[in-house]
Design a protein around this nucleic acid. Structure first.
Lengths: 207, 207
DNA sequence: ACAGTGTTTAACGAATGAGTTAAACACAAA
DNA sequence: TTTGTGTTTAACTCATTCGTTAAACACTGT
């Protein structure tokens, strides 16, 4: 009895590592088994199929990716107050698992039809969230700045540098990995200031 | 005689479409042949192997992705003057081929060891570019803002919303694709103002 | 009509991958 | 020891994939 959660965990770890790196199609069950140091059949014993194993990995990755955004949409705080917290949370998450954004984005880009289902599972109500955002446009946002653009900006600034890590490290930081990491940490302080900047100064009236 | 560039072009088109969508491992030669409406062997006739076909597609995509950044690094203009042009160029490129960023980033994330070689082929000299950037820190950048962070910010704001298209469309725009596109176009005007904002107001002294 | 070249196809061979089946192993309870 | 259950493995089947080979087709110049 007592499910061998140790082995199961080894499988998940190896599957994550390889799926993140090479994608679903680029990873064979044998690869995962080898990495976990076990026989291939075990994978089918614990997870019935490759699909199910992938699904487990994906949902796990997804849930560490979306909630940040979801919590913002649900939060009672104003954007301005929320941003520093969000930035720190997201960047810390990225530092811990830099491969997740590109993995999640790639999967959703391949199968965008999954989005509605995912949203339901995550318990997000987009229309409600949007109402909330627009209702808040009485604060520092007043003047025409689309709250959606603001959210997009914050997330872009947090996530992209990790999705583009190899390019950024090589071109901008001359291949120096430590320097890259250091810069990412600095962004935790830099970004909130930036965002506050273009929230207070009303960057509106576009035409 | 006269190489059948028409067929060759059909192959490239189909290969791009499918590689962009499903990745290298997720796309079979048969898939490409079917999409192009030709026999599979033809793929090996024009491009010796799947690897070579993929390489052709990748290099093509890459060259529409990096040059924007490279041209910025080489340009004689100041950042401030260059930003609006860069933003428009990059966003227009993304609007034309929204799948490219995620495709390129995924490939580079899987094979980061390719970066040095790619940089060489693209004719970018990172160290020289960095010197240039730091030399420019006498203008509006003076005060401690790392030019690398600035570049990173601009590219993040331009590219990420496209890499995350399905999520953004569904959550932020309630699945309304036209609204998403419209917002992306608005960003061509919005972003330069934003960037100018946090360039002139010296967002420095972090600690 | 024939030769030559470019283009397209069908058929084959070897390799790899996923999932199943049945058997071996470990070990605790009776 | 035997029984039972959970765990691990080896071996097989079936499908898919890549790349090659050799032959068919089209069309041009002689």
């Amino acid at each position: 009895m007592a499910l061998n959660t140790e082995t199961e965990q080894k499988i998940i770890s190896s599957a994550e590592k390889l799926f993140f790196q090479k994608g679903k199609a680029g990873t064979s069950m044998q690869d995962i088994a080898d990495d976990a140091g076990i026989n291939r059949t075990l994978l089918n014993y614990y997870f019935r199929s490759k699909d199910q194993l992938f699904e487990a990995v994906f949902k796990n990755a997804m849930s560490s990716f979306v909630p940040n955004l979801a919590s913002m949409l649900r939060s009672d705080m104003s954007f301005e107050a929320y941003v520093p917290f969000l930035v720190e949370t997201v960047i810390d998450a990225m530092l811990e698992n830099p491969q997740i954004p590109i993995f999640v984005l790639q999967e959703l880009s391949s199968n965008p039809e999954r989005m509605p289902q995912i949203i339901k599972e995550m318990g997000i109500d987009p229309s409600l969230a949007i109402e909330k955002m627009e209702g808040e446009s009485t604060g520092p946002l007043a003047g025409g700045t689309d709250p959606r653009q603001l959210i997009l900006n914050v997330l872009s600034l947090c996530i992209f540098p990790f999705a583009a890590r190899p390019v950024v490290t090589e071109i901008l930081f001359n291949g120096d990995n430590d320097l890259y990491i250091e810069s990412m940490k600095q962004r935790k302080h830099l970004l909130p200031k930036l965002v506050k900047e273009f929230m207070t100064k009303s960057t509106h009236d576009e035409n």
